[in-house]
């Protein structure tokens, strides 16, 4: 349910960046989301379908890269993968671990286009007013 709030925050951020860069359209949004980030990628995709309407990202593709969980053991110094509800050291089983990766909720990158400039640029690359 909170995926819609997160999508709206994402789109505010995306539109601010697009305007600042002078872009008229956002064609792709790439996120990095970890299993402990607190959002369901599938629900985020669904919410995005509704939230993007009427924004500069109305036709944008939302691409979500799912990160892995990686922990570092404070007891045996090992590093390794873990499950969201089992963050123990994969080597010695200690619960004294630190999460290195897996709780990301990051706007990684955007792909922008400037439609108006493309239309006003002739074959030699000169811009017309």
């Amino acid at each position: 349910m909170h995926e819609l709030s997160i999508c709206q925050a994402l789109l505010r951020q995306v539109e601010d960046i697009a305007r600042r860069e002078g872009a008229d359209r956002v064609t792709k949004i790439i996120l990095r989301v970890g299993p402990l980030g607190g959002v369901e990628p599938q629900l985020l995709q669904q919410a995005f379908g509704f939230a993007r309407v009427g924004t500069l990202a109305a036709e944008a593709e939302l691409s979500i890269e799912e990160a892995e969980i990686l922990v570092h053991c404070l007891d045996c110094d090992a590093e390794g993968q873990a499950l969201a509800n089992r963050l123990l050291c994969p080597v010695c089983g200690s619960y004294r671990t630190r999460l290195l990766r897996g709780d990301e909720l990051i706007l990684a990158s955007l792909e922008l286009t400037r439609t108006t400039r493309d239309l006003l640029t002739d074959s030699e690359g000169y811009e017309h007013v």
């Binding site: 997160i6 951020q13 860069e21 064609t27 990051i106 955007l110 922008l112």
Partner: peptide, 21 residues
Amino acid sequence: LAHTASGREALEVLSGLLAEN
């Protein structure tokens, strides 16, 4: 900011999704 071959611009942002909050 970086330009891609297609003329589209790929922009690396790397900010938290909930930065505002």
